[in-house]
Amino acid sequence: MTVSAYLILASILFTIGAVTVLVRRNAIIVFMGIELMLNAANLAFLTFSRMWGDLTGQLAAFFVMVVAAAEVVVGLAIIVSLFRTRRTVSVDDENLMRH
């Protein structure tokens, strides 16, 4: 049982997040899937940080967190304004850009 187990766990979480993006239609849930992927990445960062005994990995995770916060703010604002204009949060309905 090695520390690599954390990496496997991170892979599983990342995959679940990615598949969420593919199959769910509710924009909010899709967004949560993205957050999960970011968290999986953070988990991997921390594992590697521990492996190498280097705090820089933790720092990278910290920055990921900050960027995720910013992303959430903007993303949710987009969802809210979409909902206001289209009365739906389904990502399939937002294909106006195609035309």
Binding site: N42, L46, S49, V72
Partner: peptide, 22 residues
Amino acid sequence: LQAPFLGVAQLVVYTGAIMMLF
């Protein structure tokens, strides 16, 4: 994983702020 600061930050930022925003 020996990252107490980030553990706390995770709790505060993700559970406390981001998920509540959701």
